[in-house]
Amino acid sequence: MSDTTLDVRELPPAERHPKIHSAFDDLESGEALTILNDHDPKPLFYEMQAEVDAFDADNYAVEQRGPAEFAATFPKK
């Protein structure tokens, strides 16, 4: 599985979800997008689960690496 990493911590909040969705759309089936964020991206998980058919919610993973660093992996079916 190929993995693309996108650090959105420096982006204004209004720009984060559109950039993440665009990067996810660019993935091939079987690849994954890992985002680095300053908070747990649980709202994004629910958004992807509800709106993106290609999102593999069963294999989603999130790891807190520090007080303001979360790495969340969004696999594509």
Rank of each mutant, 00 (worst) to 15 (best):
A61T: 15
M1C: 11
F45T: 03
H21T: 11
R16S: 01
P43C: 08
P18K: 01
V52D: 12
P75Y: 07
S2H: 08
E31V: 03
R65V: 10
D40N: 12
M48T: 04
D58F: 06
V52M: 12
E47V: 09
L44K: 01
P67C: 04
D40V: 08
E15W: 05
R16Q: 11
F24T: 03
D3L: 14
A71E: 14
D53Y: 06
D40Y: 04
Q64E: 15
F74H: 02
L36P: 00
K42Q: 11
P13E: 15
Y46W: 15
P18Q: 10
Y60C: 05
L33G: 02
N59Q: 09
A32L: 05
R9T: 14
D56H: 05
Q49P: 00
E15F: 07
M48C: 06
N37H: 11
D3A: 04
A14M: 14
E47F: 10
P41C: 10
A71G: 00
K77A: 11
L27M: 03
S22A: 13
L44V: 09
E31S: 00
K42W: 12
K76W: 10
L6N: 01
A32H: 07
Y46T: 08
T34A: 06
T4N: 07
K76Y: 09
R16F: 02
M48L: 15
K77G: 08
D7E: 13
V52T: 13
F24W: 04
E47A: 06
E63K: 00
F74K: 00
P75K: 01
A71P: 02
D25Y: 05
L33V: 09
L6A: 07
L11I: 08
K77M: 11
L33F: 07
V52F: 12
F74T: 04
P13T: 12
D40T: 04
A57I: 15
V62T: 09
L44T: 09
S22Q: 13
E31K: 00
